[in-house]
Design a protein around this nucleic acid. Structure first.
Lengths: 112, 112
DNA sequence: TAGAAAGTGAAGTCTGCACTTGACTATCAT
DNA sequence: ATGATAGTCAAGTGCAGACTTCACTTTCTA
């Protein structure tokens, strides 16, 4: 597989869609787009427990949408650009694949 | 909201992530990337009922990832480029938003 | 025109996973 | 040092949603 499509096989974007398939995780992600935040800061407005939020963070990290590090007793969470980059690359690739097939089909139907 | 970002608010991409958040629907979508297919053709390899598959198609259509039309007694399903276009535009927008905020932050920390 | 094939709608089943509880550790403040 | 704050782990609960069944309609074909 060429370097350009590496990491773009369906299996590579699966964690991304799994992560953003949940509305709570989407909220967390969009909230982190605003600014870096701790587990507590993220959990409060959503009305869920710290435990529950920690579980979501792990899923988001697996998709490389979020990265986190411990600072003192807090866990600082921030957007990881890798996930968004992969998502964009995936969408662009699929779109171009579809377009080339569509054009090929039209070519057959309409003639050259 | 400017025309360029219209349809890219979080609420607009929600159906997209909901649709692709399910592994069966991802399979259906990738299968349709290969070629247009009927409900029956899509259901057989997945080992699920026609009813079940029809339900998935509705979700994919709501996300504009798939479009379908009745041809005789068959329903022909195909990829709708609108969904992929929206997905790509969304990812690009979010990525640029994140980058501008990241750069602004670095500017503060490191100085001009 | 009878039977088969493709699909749809309503209603039910069941399982994955979002979320909690309770017990525990680590860090901060006073 | 003592309490308060932030987070983590293991284990359990409940429900949304994926999937089924059954009854029905429409279209094809022999």
């Amino acid at each position: 597989m060429s370097p350009a499509i590496e990491g773009l096989a369906p299996s590579a974007v699966e964690p991304l869609f799994v992560a953003l398939g949940d509305s709570t995780r989407r909220s967390i992600f969009f909230s982190l787009m605003e600014r870096e935040q701790s587990i507590k800061e993220l959990a409060s407005p959503l009305g869920i427990t710290l435990t529950g939020l920690g579980q979501h963070i792990r899923v988001l990290e697996a998709a490389q949408l979020v990265s986190s590090r411990k600072v003192g007793r807090e866990r600082r969470c921030a957007v990881d650009p890798a996930g968004l980059e992969r998502l964009e690359a995936f969408a662009r690739l699929q779109r171009s694949l579809w377009r080339s097939r569509f054009d090929a089909l039209r070519h057959i139907v309409e003639g050259p």
